[in-house]
Design a protein around this nucleic acid. Structure first.
Lengths: 225, 225
DNA sequence: TCTTGATGTCAACGGCGTTTACATATCATG
DNA sequence: CATGATATGTAAACGCCGTTGACATCAAGA
């Protein structure tokens, strides 16, 4: 019948075709932007639909429910994070392999922390315990980027092999904890200026016994970078 | 007028008095339990009201809005966490002061991680960026417990004074990151068993140059405890 | 051409936080 | 004790949300 639209909505009126064309991709893009600017709570099916001038129910032709959409947005955020880490690694200049591997490792952490600073909402979304749909590749993942960085450290001798096991856990925990605590303003306990990210990166390297070269005085820790 | 109650609710029917008596405290207790068992999303004004057999609007006589209630629940969760840390510290047995200060420091971290394991929902709530009302004391806070532990390390000589500045940030970041990542099942990347918490505590001590005694071979890190 | 499946709309449901007007109890003050 | 102010609870509504089921439109193959 001739669809009179007394619903107060305005769907499909400014669209020439009845069908959208690439709604699934548009939904993901819009939901990603909402998550970026307002956090996961801002990702509302009705708001996404409103922005794309589509009925809320249309979303259900592409995602079984809100969690599925949010899960794919989380996958996108993890990709954003991994790419930022790799970008930072790419900026490291050439030197001797060992120093370079250390700088690349620190760059990974710096990329993580910069991303957390610039896009706190996306970082939170990235670590929502929701799995993305199988259609999302998840490569490169932040975890694998970190693992590669650690492997490189071992290859150049900068990281003792005995420290390699569980190193992802240590490094990732410290970086992630710092990032989320800072994002949650947890360091604003006594109105001091927030702690320096480089201090955290330095502490991580020290806890892994990463050494720039064979130290003359054993055990004297050097400030890296 | 004679209040016929056609609303489908059942308020005040099983209660003898029109007034509750100590609704504010009851609201906090019930909201805390909901947060414990189902996370912050489970803390619903209507559900809390339902459980206490009170109308939803009654809550607004005691809290301006949902965030205020949740903020106080967050404050309670932070207290729970701090108490758990202190409990663990209390279990440390007597030895020489230096070893004892180290064990007490590690106990603080262990208390944090055990709490995160046992009450993951409360841990998440504890770090919601919502301030509790001024009526909540917030003592002892997890932050202050940690700071006291670090001061004790310095006092016994187990922590070099040069490492004292920013030590809260390093320790807290690592512990908190590990706890939240484990709670979010982020370590389930490749079906391996989750990493050992003691490894993380050990790494923290190493990154702070905490030393059980003056090492004969400088720089050789000893496994603590 | 006709049918079938994919994609979008509409209207409704119940749940939520919140507000407004009103009901009832407690308490201070005469 | 009486009375009026104040604190505390209720009922009903509002607009938001996710989700569903019936229906409309379109594209593509038999």
């Amino acid at each position: 019948m001739n669809a009179v639209n007394i619903s107060g909505y305005n769907h499909a009126m400014s669209r020439s075709t009845y069908h959208h064309g690439d709604l699934r991709r548009a939904l993901l893009t819009e939901a990603h932007e909402l998550a970026r600017s307002g956090g996961s709570d801002a990702v509302t099916l009705r708001e996404v639909a409103r922005r794309l001038e589509v009925s809320p129910a249309a979303i259900y032709r592409h995602f079984p429910d809100r969690d599925a959409l949010l899960g794919d947005v989380a996958g996108m955020a993890r990709l954003d994070l991994a790419r930022r880490m790799l970008d930072e690694v790419g900026l490291v200049e050439e030197t001797d392999p060992r120093t370079r591997s250390i700088r690349r490792f620190l760059a990974i952490g710096r990329g993580y922390l910069d991303f957390a600073q610039d896009e706190p909402n996306l970082l939170a979304v990235a670590f929502l315990p929701i799995a993305p749909s199988r259609s999302m590749s998840e490569d490169p993942s932040p975890w694998h980027v970190l693992a590669a960085g650690l492997d490189e450290l071992v290859a150049t001798g900068a990281l003792p092999v005995e420290r390699r096991a569980g190193a992802e856990t240590i490094a990732w925990s410290a970086v992630h904890g710092f990032a989320t605590l800072r994002a949650g303003r947890a360091f604003d306990v006594s109105g001091e200026p927030g702690p320096d990210p480089e201090t955290v990166l330095d502490a991580i390297a020290r806890s892994l016994d990463v050494r720039p070269s064979m130290p003359k005085v054993r055990g004297k820790h050097h400030r890296l970078r």
